[in-house]
């Protein structure tokens, strides 16, 4: 536990045919931090995410979780180790109730998930914990609502609660505020802040005001590699960051001027 970094990548590379999506990324996420991964579209943020959660296999490089090499572990296995991700599109089970959504996550640790001969009632003892989690994201009233009928913001809240049910040490959130109105965004910021207590969060986020409110440390990704790192102050004052956000035109102009 002396290692201050929960997650570390060493020279992480992902090549698709003739195209390097992630280029030599060395990322270090400190325990207890809310760490943001930002960058313009196509910078490779989601690819990095998919590498970290093993939905993609790295071409080269290593991924360490608490010092343990998890590069060759499977998605489901690292989830049980405590690295749990959310998705860009809201990842819920649409035709289950809100409560059942959470229960499926809790069930993951029960060791009865292959018990096809057991009554479903054996899961009811998880219901109290489900209600606690639903309550923590303000969804207690919707416990028995079928998820597909929930509003978008509530689905995201449910997704977060489901992720929390896994008691993850490291939460990976892929654009938690994507597609939300400003009211919902504020709510999610609060939820993430609450959820982050006692854990580490790595999030991809477009909304810089969210990043400024939440994040302890920021890594800026551009064209597959890390451009710079620091807190919001440092990063936002870095001219190179502005450059990549202003787009290629501004950058080439500047290069020409130099």
């Amino acid at each position: 536990m002396s290692d201050p970094f929960v997650l570390e990548t060493q020279n992480l590379v992902k090549e698709f045919k003739g195209f390097v999506a992630v280029d030599d990324v060395n990322l270090k996420v400190q325990r207890g931090h809310i760490h943001a991964l930002i960058g313009p579209n196509g910078a490779g943020k989601t690819t990095v995410f998919n590498l970290l959660t093993k939905f993609l296999i790295p071409t080269r490089g290593k991924i360490l979780f608490k010092g343990m090499d998890i590069t060759s572990m499977k998605s489901a296995a690292i989830a049980r180790e405590g690295v749990v991700r959310s998705f860009q599109i809201s990842a819920v089970f649409p035709h289950m109730t809100a409560l059942e959504n959470i229960r499926v996550a809790l069930q993951s640790f029960e060791g009865n998930s292959f018990a096809f001969w057991k009554s479903g009632d054996s899961l009811n003892r998880l219901n109290d914990r489900c209600m606690e989690l639903l309550d923590s994201v303000g969804l207690a009233d919707f416990a028995h609502t079928t998820t597909v009928e929930l509003a978008y913001g509530r689905k995201r809240a449910l997704e977060l609660a489901t992720t929390l049910a896994m008691e993850p040490e490291l939460m990976l959130l892929d654009e938690p505020t994507q597609g939300m109105g400003s009211e919902d965004v504020d709510q999610v910021v609060e939820l993430v802040r609450k959820a982050a207590q006692g854990r580490t969060v790595l999030m991809v986020e477009h909304n810089l005001s969210v990043v400024s409110k939440l994040c302890d440390r920021i890594s800026v990704l551009a064209q597959g590699s890390i451009l710079t790192e620091g807190d919001y102050q440092e990063v936002s004052e870095d001219p190179r960051v502005r450059e990549v956000y202003m787009g290629g035109a501004a950058a080439t102009e500047q290069e020409a001027a130099e």
Binding site: M96, N112, S113, F114, F116, W117, S119
Partner: peptide, 14 residues
């Protein structure tokens, strides 16, 4: 309707 069935439903849905 078993615990296993719940997981199947989850797999089917997402």
């Amino acid at each position: 309707n078993s615990p296993y069935g719940q997981v199947l439903k989850a797999i089917k849905q997402n």
